[in-house]
Amino acid sequence: MKEVFLPGNLEELWRALEREPAPRPYCGGTDLLVHLRSGKTDPDALVCLERIPELSGVREEEGGLWIGAATTHARLLDDPLVRARLPLLARALSTLGSPPVRNMGTIGGNICTASPAGDTLPPLYALDGEVELRSRDSSRRMPLRRFITGPGETALRPDEILAGVRVTPDGTYNVHHFEKIGIRRAMACSIASLAALLRVSSSGEIEAARLAWGSVGPTVVVSGEAEQALLGKRLTRDVLEDAAERARKAVSPIDDVRASAAYRREVSGNLLLRLMEHRPL
């Protein structure tokens, strides 16, 4: 039996977190409960963030969007702001788990789990997402790319929680592409994924490119080289093959029960070819 705290506001949360030893924060529990069952983690007590209004929802702020850490994937998928301004994230969310998992799981949980296979991470990297970390006495921001320090590792301090993530979408991108390879067509952990944002001019020239790969390295992989290879070019097979070759060099995948490193490396490049099908919006 574990003690579980259910704070209804931030003040109650801070009080709960002052206990010794500090209870472990969680939200949907869709990652944490799996680890509790397997014995991989065994905190004395838990504190649930899902009932704290300050940590939920989506709002426009500073020209971008602020997304509360405790917002569920299902709620994000339904959110008109997310759908209109973050189609890349919405596409990734629609491949995450299954309806029940999306009803429970949260974006904050996905970020804090910091799995290389976390499906919200490649889009958030491509979008240059920024995390907001809070404790009773402090609030700080940092780029997501710095927050995630390794597989399952973050820069979160013991007294902190993730309060939200801030994304400032650049409306000039006109190709928003996300693709995930899983063993089955839904409810599948990512074997490799690609999030891509492109700005393609009316004459077909690629003016800007942001690329991020999931599940092919200890954390999300970005490759300036692959992005560079696209700039000033067109979405032709040769151009994409060239970028694909660079992507294969940039990734550092592992073998696991789902796929070999060699397969992951190969498809990391292949996934770029799908961009050929894209006509700018």
Partner: peptide, 22 residues
């Protein structure tokens, strides 16, 4: 007939579309 096995077979056959390197 997993995706990985299929892709490997396609590659060995040299189907265009599958990356040539690995």
């Amino acid at each position: 007939l997993t995706a990985e096995r299929v892709l490997e077979a396609l590659r060995r056959k040299g189907t265009p579309g599958a990356g040539e390197t690995s």
